[in-house]
Write a protein that binds this DNA or RNA. Structure first.
Lengths: 153, 153
DNA sequence: CGTTAATAGTTAAATAGTTGAACAGTTAAA
DNA sequence: TTTAACTGTTCAACTATTTAACTATTAACG
């Protein structure tokens, strides 16, 4: 058992990734659920990070169709969290930015999530969690390449 | 930068876990999307693993309300994938099992997901992926404890 | 130039998943 | 035996998603 075969590793990965995803989503929701959905928080997070972006860009990042983004952005726009600004040079393009209210709500919810994640990862050895995140980031890159491969064939 | 502080690790974890989740969900869906949703596949997977379970148990595992489970199970029952059997001793309880069709569809989709995950993790050093999964499993335990803590306070 | 392509985003209908509250039926406790 | 607890369902409301059709705009090129 000290050298698990590939099949066992695959099984364990599928099981644990599903379980962690469900539990983490539930904990995040407990923190921010009354103000925002998890997806809406991640949308605020992304726009806050890049400053300004388009629907197409979000669709790419979230790996969903543009119409799904339109629907979500409209809901957030109705809550006054997001601003839509037409590009004057290319009038097809709409830039999405956070409003003051959007920024404030993001900061508030992000603080809660930060505390949550911190309370989790400080229960690990620092070297272990660092290695874990590095492999996780590698996996993220591998997934990105898989997507390109898929699109290219 | 060789010794990142906690805040940086937390930031990186939040970003990468979100990104991986989105991309993985998308790839899984590409494999099984026409027959089942991702959640439905995971439900088949769980029931296949334990043989038989109840709605309450699924609600616990999936961390959602029982009414959400009822809705999903009903959809899968309409497709002939799941059987509902009342417990004769405690007639409140309904046991959920896979039908023949459910088993076959599970096997078919699981094979695809297996191949997908295998193609991903074989791109890592075996020791690295093994360590990664072990930490992931630890995280899963920590999350379970966090849930208990939350419920207990 | 003018027609045709491609692009950015929206709309609308359909489906899946989710919550919360009310409810039925059943079992356990007092 | 009445009351409380539990299992599962129904319903209304909502978010997220896809597909297909559509508008408006820009780019390509003959």
């Amino acid at each position: 058992m000290s050298v698990p075969n590939i099949k066992e590793l695959v099984d364990r990965y599928i099981a644990v990734s599903f379980s962690v995803e469900k539990k983490a989503a539930s904990l995040v929701k407990d923190q921010i659920g009354s103000d925002l959905t998890n997806d809406q928080h991640y949308t605020l997070r992304y726009i806050n990070q890049v400053g300004s972006c388009t629907s197409s860009e979000l669709a790419e990042v979230f790996d969903v169709k543009k119409s799904a983004i339109t629907a979500m952005i409209t809901r957030m726009w109705e809550k006054g969290l997001i601003q839509r600004t037409r590009d004057e040079n290319d009038r097809r393009v709409v830039y999405l930015t956070l409003t003051e209210k959007g920024n404030e709500l993001y900061a508030k919810t992000e603080e809660k999530i930060h505390k949550l994640v911190e309370s989790l990862i400080t229960r690990f050895d620092q070297a272990e969690i660092q290695q874990f995140i590095e492999t996780f980031e590698k996996l993220n890159k591998v997934l990105l390449e898989s997507k390109d491969f898929k699109a290219g064939e």
